[in-house]
Nucleic acid binder design. Structure first.
Length: 296
DNA sequence: GCATAAGGCTGGTTTTCGAA
DNA sequence: TTCGAAAACCAGCCTTATGC
């Protein structure tokens, strides 16, 4: 097979002249002197063995062969440009870093398996997790410290996009020895008269919960409030009362002495999902992991 | 492995030439 | 006369070959 030996610069020069029908304008456009540009075209023509331009001292016009060549070169240059842009993204997939802001309860339920699958295929990717409250997740997404967030929104926030992945219901958390533990479901009214342990007022979870606590007149039954939802099982385990927590926040493996009982009439839930900044573009790594999370 | 020389390539300036 | 392409010449850089 015959090998044609020309370079990228010659093609750029050819397109510049063809698009302007002028060596002078083309030379200015690609920051070259007119003679240098002329020589470049001449060499390309010599390499191809065809005349690409019919030129006089007054006029430069593409030959039919030149016109055909231009069409193909423009397509090729477009593809090359696209390849050059994509190659950065591909490299990023192999050595990139991803930062996820999340509420702790999503780590076990949403993150571990997708991260495991991601690292299996791309072992050099570094994963950074910023776990914290709902507000810290939103703040980390908003200021760009995190590629995306996992959590819930107690109310819509301008500039923040929320895409729900699953529902997380609120449950009662009791000791196995508690009389209420014989139930498979509990109505909110059955919590009247119990000593309740819940999340503090500053938590987004509490804002969701407050609708029922106020409606069922349960606020006065609260004896302990904790800032962290992860503290509630320990308090219940210590015998201080009945906990009310989102189901995903509870890890049964760490508390075999406790039981979760779904609360009904009504079933109260929060939507757990992906939090992104409006107008933000995800990195290839973040996009890949997000796809695995949504499909898990 | 390093230094040096030769050759090739690229791009710049200046000049020439031809057409309008 | 003006404008623009082409030719001539020069300088700088890079690659390759050679000798130590």
């Amino acid at each position: 097979m015959k090998r044609i030996n020309f370079d990228f610069q010659q093609l750029i020069a050819f397109v510049a002249v063809a698009e302007r029908n002028s060596f002078k304008l083309a030379a200015e456009a690609i920051d070259l002197s007119t003679p240098a540009l002329s020589r470049r075209i001449e060499k390309l023509e010599s390499t191809l063995g065809v005349r690409l331009f019919n030129r006089t001292t007054r006029e430069v016009k593409l030959t039919p062969v030149g016109r055909s060549f231009l069409e193909r070169v423009q397509v090729t240059l477009g593809q090359l440009e696209e390849t050059a842009l994509n190659i950065g993204d591909i490299a990023d997939l192999y050595i990139g870093q991803i930062t996820i802001a999340c509420i702790p309860s999503t780590i076990d339920s949403l993150l571990t398996k997708p991260i495991e699958r991601l690292l299996k295929n791309y072992p050099k990717i570094k994963v950074k997790i910023l776990d914290g409250s709902e507000s810290s997740v939103i703040e980390n997404v908003r200021n760009g410290k995190a590629d995306f967030g996992l959590g819930f929104l107690s109310s819509p926030i301008p500039g923040i996009i929320f895409e729900k992945i699953q529902n997380d219901i609120f449950v009662a958390l009791t000791k196995l020895t508690d009389p209420l533990a014989i139930h498979d479901k509990l109505e909110w009214d059955q919590l009247n008269g119990q000593r309740l342990i819940t999340i503090g007022q500053e938590s987004g979870n509490r804002q969701v919960l407050n609708t029922q606590l106020l409606d069922k007149d349960l606020s006065s039954s609260i004896c302990i409030e904790a800032n962290r939802v992860s503290s509630l099982p320990n308090l219940v385990s210590a015998g201080f009362g009945i906990g009310i927590i989102p189901l995903l926040s509870f890890n049964q493996k760490n508390h075999s002495d406790l039981k979760t009982i779904p609360l009904i009439n009504p079933v109260l839930s929060r939507g757990i999902g992906v939090i992104t900044a409006h107008g933000g573009k995800l990195s290839p790594v973040a996009d890949l992991l997000l796809g695995k999370i949504k499909n898990s």
